[in-house]
Every structure is written in structure tokens, then in C-alpha cells.
């Protein structure tokens, strides 16, 4: 069996390890703080209030519709951005594990994505509060948040694996992506909805991350995402995994020498 496939199978078999470390990493990070991971939620809340008040004035939009949409967009963006930027270092940061213990490599991207799901769960509290206070309507479309989340997570897994390999081999990737992420943020539908833009929404939908955001955000706001969003996200999933698997199969055994 090609080394990439056996690695992924072994990783899935040991997925409880990824769960354990995702949780213990979160705990370790906030070890000596009182609020722990809720600092994250608090930070999000502060950001949402500040940005929400400022931008709703600037854009002259109704706060009751803008703030929920901003909150939902922001918490999803935080998960995407963290998985992508940290993804480039997912193997190099774990060099001391990789070079000393015989663990499957895909475990590390799994752990990264799981850890950010844990963070998302904390941030989701902020959205729930906002949704209750501003009476965001719930509908059957809200349930689409589940397939949306699954699609996004499956996409993030290949992204983290691919970027982890590229970042281990080419150390510039980490910094290059760090430089591009703010741009991707600006052309994502976090701060504004595509239909607010005067010059049309094409540029927003050129950003692949916009689709990953919308597939979760729209359902959170009680709306079904447009169908083309599902096509893009599904297409990214297939093409992304195909490329990543090809790369992982051919270069998996090199990773230990790269880190």
C-alpha cells in the first residue's frame, strides 16, 4: 500500500490520540489563566462588539442584521485562518515528536483541526448570545450548519496536510501565507455581505475561503447557502484531496528528514 494511505489509515485508527492531545493542548495553553479557553470567546465578543458598532455605522447598515452576520463570519474565519496558518508549521512544530516516536503523520493535521474545532465550540457561545439578544431567526436551513461544518472540516484536513508538507520543505510558505491571509480576510464575506458591495460580488467569490465561510455562516443566520457554494466546496474537497494524497503518497517518507 502506498505510504500515504497506510499513514492515514493508521492515523484514523489512533484518532483517540488526536482527540486527547487536542483537548490537552487547549488545557495546557490556558494553564495558568482563570478563564481558560473562555478568554478566546471573550476576545471574540470584544471584537464583535467593537467592530459591529463601528462598521454598522460606517456601512450604514442595520445593527440587528449586521452584528449576527459579523459574529458568525468571524468565528468561522478564526477557525479557517488558524488551521491554514498553523497548518504550514504542523509538522515542523512537532519535529521532536516526529523524529523520536513512530506515530503516523496525519495525526498532526487531525489534531490541529480538532483543536480549532474545540476553539470554535467556545466561540459559538458568543454567537448564541448574539443570536438570542438580536433574535436571529432559526429555520430548517439552520440544520444545514452540520453538513456545512463537515464539508469545511474535511477541506481543512487536506489543507493542513498539504500546507504542512509544503511548509516543512519550503520554510517560506509559512511567512508567505501569513502575508496573504489579511488580504483573504478583506475579500471574504466576514465584514460585509457580498450583496452590500457596490461593484458586485465576483471578487468575494473568487476567494475560495469565502465559500468555506458561507457554507457555515448562512445556515447559522437561518438562510440556505447558494447552491454554487456547495459546488465549489465539494469541488475543492475532491481536487484538494486528490492532489494532497498524490503528494502525501510520494513524499510521506521524506517528512522526517524535512522537519
Amino acid at each position: 500500500m502506498p505510504p500515504g494511505y497506510s499513514d492515514i489509515i493508521a492515523s484514523l485508527r489512533q484518532s483517540r490520540l488526536a482527540f486527547h492531545f487536542a483537548l490537552s493542548d487547549t488545557r495546557a495553553r490556558y494553564r495558568r489563566s482563570v478563564l481558560g479557553p473562555f478568554w478566546l470567546a471573550l476576545g471574540t465578543a470584544v471584537g464583535v462588539v467593537g467592530m459591529g458598532l463601528l462598521w454598522s455605522e460606517l456601512l450604514k447598515v442595520d445593527r440587528a442584521t449586521f452584528i449576527p452576520s459579523l459574529t458568525a463570519g468571524l468565528i468561522v474565519w478564526q477557525m479557517l485562518a488558524a488551521c491554514i496558518t498553523e497548518g504550514t508549521a504542523v509538522f515542523t512544530r512537532q519535529a521532536n515528536v516526529i523524529r523520536n516516536l513512530q506515530l503516523p503523520y496525519f495525526l498532526h493535521p487531525m489534531q490541529l483541526v480538532l483543536r480549532n474545532l474545540v476553539n470554535l465550540a467556545h466561540n459559538l457561545l458568543v454567537f448564541v448570545v448574539v443570536a438570542i439578544v438580536l433574535a436571529v431567526p432559526a429555520s430548517w436551513s439552520t440544520l444545514l450548519v452540520i453538513p456545512g461544518l463537515v464539508l469545511t472540516v474535511l477541506n481543512l484536513l487536506w489543507m493542513a496536510l498539504m500546507l504542512g508538507m509544503l511548509g516543512a520543505r519550503f520554510r517560506d510558505v509559512e511567512y508567505a501565507l501569513g502575508a496573504v491571509m489579511p488580504l483573504l480576510f478583506v475579500i471574504s464575506p466576514v465584514l460585509f455581505r457580498p450583496d452590500y458591495l457596490p461593484f458586485g460580488s465576483t471578487i468575494i467569490w473568487m476567494n475560495p475561503l469565502s465559500h468555506l465561510i458561507d457554507v457555515i455562516r448562512s445556515p447559522l443566520l437561518g438562510v440556505s447557502p447558494p447552491l454554487f457554494v456547495y459546488y465549489t466546496v465539494g469541488g475543492m474537497l475532491l481536487v484538494g484531496w486528490a492532489l494532497t494524497l498524490a503528494l502525501f503518497n510520494s513524499r510521506r517518507n521524506r517528512i522526517a528528514f524535512w522537519v
Partner: peptide, 12 residues
Amino acid sequence: TVLEIGAGMDTE
């Protein structure tokens, strides 16, 4: 394996 000191430990 006991290869490198502290390998795989989380010092926090």
C-alpha cells in the same frame, strides 16, 4: 524509544 531528551513531552 528513548532517543532525545524530552522528546514528545509538553513542558507546560
